[in-house]
């Protein structure tokens, strides 16, 4: 039973992750991510981490993904399918590096994991992975990271509000100088390293964005 559930969850997780990248419509990508996260929750459950599995379903598959769906619906991503970067060098290099990373991770996990495959696994206490144990750890061993994380959430909220709100009484946005927009070639921008065609496109769309940003703020 455990084996069957594991393979269902593992295939679901991989298929969901592939779907996020492959599907062109952002809305389907988000739904695919939900499937991926639910499969992960099942994997956590098989690892005796009941609390983490519950949190995964409630927070990620529930709250966060609903937020994603809202954002995609509001922004209306359907009209702008995600395009591959138009650069031949990147088209070869990116899969190559991804493959290298894949091989490296396989060596790491298989090289150490296979030795445990015929064993019984770790001896766990009866209450392993229960909220009580996690709560105790958060209040003793990991007290400081726990408290710092709560401060981090406050700061993230402050930052988000700062970026999102519209302020009145500010000067008119400055008109970007044409020289400021076009950087001279050969200065090592990120766009250059990702392929020249991308650079021109991003500059053109960036100037469109500036006018719309200005309107919102004004």
């Amino acid at each position: 039973m455990v084996e069957i559930l594991f393979f269902i969850a593992a295939i679901g997780a991989i298929a969901g992750a592939v779907g996020v990248v492959v599907l062109e419509n952002p809305f389907y990508s988000v739904l695919s991510l939900v499937a991926h996260l639910l499969s992960l929750a099942l994997l956590f459950l098989l690892l005796e981490a009941q609390f983490v599995a519950a949190v995964q379903v409630v927070v990620y598959a529930g709250a966060v993904m609903v937020l994603y769906v809202f954002v995609v619906s509001y922004v209306g991503g359907q009209n702008l399918p995600i395009r591959a970067v138009n650069s031949p060098s990147l088209r070869i290099a990116a899969p190559l590096f991804a493959f290298c990373l894949f091989v490296e991770l396989m060596i790491a996990t298989l090289g150490t994991g296979l030795s445990a495959i015929s064993s019984e696994g770790p001896k766990l206490a009866a209450n392993y992975g229960e909220p009580e144990q996690i709560g105790e750890l958060l209040l003793t061993k990991f007290l400081l990271p726990f408290e710092v994380a709560s401060f981090l959430l406050l700061i993230a909220a402050v930052g988000a509000v700062m970026l999102a709100r519209r302020r009145r009484g500010l000067d008119e946005p400055e008109v970007p100088a044409p020289l400021g927009l076009l950087r001279p070639a050969g200065t090592g921008t990120m766009a250059e390293s990702a392929g020249g065609g991308f650079f021109r496109k991003s500059t053109a769309s960036a100037s469109d964005d500036s006018t719309s940003t200005g309107r919102d703020l004004g």
């Binding site: 981090l152 970007p176 100037s207 200005g214």
Partner: peptide, 21 residues
């Protein structure tokens, strides 16, 4: 946690001149 507390405010501070592209 420390590296995130360092980085997240900086992401926002980099974009803090909201009217400059």
């Amino acid at each position: 946690v420390g590296i995130e507390l360092l980085s997240i405010p900086l992401y926002v501070l980099c974009a803090s001149e909201l009217q400059r592209e």
